[in-house]
Design a protein around this nucleic acid. Structure first.
Length: 294
DNA sequence: TTCCAGGTAGCCG
DNA sequence: CGGCTACATGGA
């Protein structure tokens, strides 16, 4: 892998000659919920207890409010900067005009490597809800239970509340964050994660074993388990099937059921299913594929 | 008003 | 196992 062309001056980190990277695609493809677009097109967000601002000019990535140590220790992995997406996209597009179009549409997507606890609770909250509401719920949860980690451009930021904190509150109180019937799922899952720290060790297990543990948690079914494995555990053969993915797979590949879709993806995309899923999800949601058209 | 949203738990055959 | 359905809430 090529060395990253990193510079650091006046508190601003730049990375030159970056490819297959688009902040809009990355932050708006549905994998994360805590990044918000600023008026200049950059994105500001909180992760791993830090607040950073991310922007790009052509092939230059610009990160503000980060130290070089944090860049090396956190953000290189978080933004998956050492992975060759050109090769992934080439393989997925081979002999497949559908994937070719989806990949072209979301060509700047990178799969973020997020915190597993935050990803777990975020996707429990995601069930049967739209992305804007999920973002609202998570912000409410962070503001109510997270630590204030500072302010940036006049706005206060809070980190994601720990399992210990959420295990100790009542579902009724959590429901004040407007999470509805998911409130008891959060408390039960937080308690299970506190009791056995298994969550933080399953990254190294096989997909089968990791999935088995995740499915034992309250509020986690197959779709949510695959999102957690894909977005926080580098399990790139995961293939979450939600309403959007099922719609686009029906529309474009003629797959009628979720079971058919899962089997098809496993056979077709090999180890790259997770990437394929994300290009397809972004394409479907942005274009409204299968909603009412055609 | 009704329908839908990055689904899952619980129950029934 | 597969098929139902209830579930809180807010936006369109």
């Amino acid at each position: 892998m090529n060395e990253l062309k990193v510079n650091y001056k006046n508190g601003i980190i730049t990375v030159d000659d970056i490819t297959d990277f688009d902040v809009k695609h990355i932050f708006e493809c549905g994998q994360c919920f805590r990044w918000n677009r600023e008026s200049d097109g950059s994105y500001t967000g909180a992760a791993f207890g830090r607040i950073i601002n991310v922007n790009q000019q052509d092939n230059q990535l610009v990160i503000e409010n980060s130290s070089i140590e944090d860049f090396n220790n956190i953000w290189v992995d978080y933004f998956d900067l050492n992975r060759n997406y050109h090769e992934i996209k080439r393989v997925l597009s081979e002999n497949d005009t559908i994937m070719m179009e989806a990949v072209e549409f979301g060509k700047g997507i990178r799969l973020l490597n997020q915190d597993e606890w935050e990803t777990l609770i975020s996707f429990i909250l995601s069930q049967n809800r739209s992305i804007p509401i999920i973002k609202q719920n998570i912000e409410a949860l962070c503001k109510k239970y997270g630590n204030n980690i500072g302010s940036y451009k006049g706005k206060d930021y809070y980190d994601f509340p720990s399992a210990e904190i959420l295990a100790a509150v009542s579902p009724e109180e959590i429901a004040e964050c407007r999470v509805g019937y998911r409130a008891p799922y959060i408390v039960k899952t937080a308690q299970m994660v506190c009791n056995n720290k298994i969550l933080y060790n399953i990254k190294n297990l096989s997909v089968r074993e990791a999935e088995e543990y995740l499915l034992s948690l309250s509020g986690v079914g197959p779709k949510v388990a695959h999102c957690i494995m894909l977005f926080s555990m580098k399990k790139y053969d995961s293939f979450p099937v939600d309403v959007w993915v099922q719609r686009v797979m029906k529309e474009l590949y003629g797959l009628k059921t979720q079971k058919e879709t899962t089997l098809f993806a496993k056979n077709k995309f090999k180890g790259y299913g997770g990437f394929a899923q994300q290009y397809l999800f972004y394409y479907a949601r942005e274009k409204g594929i299968g909603k009412s058209n055609s």
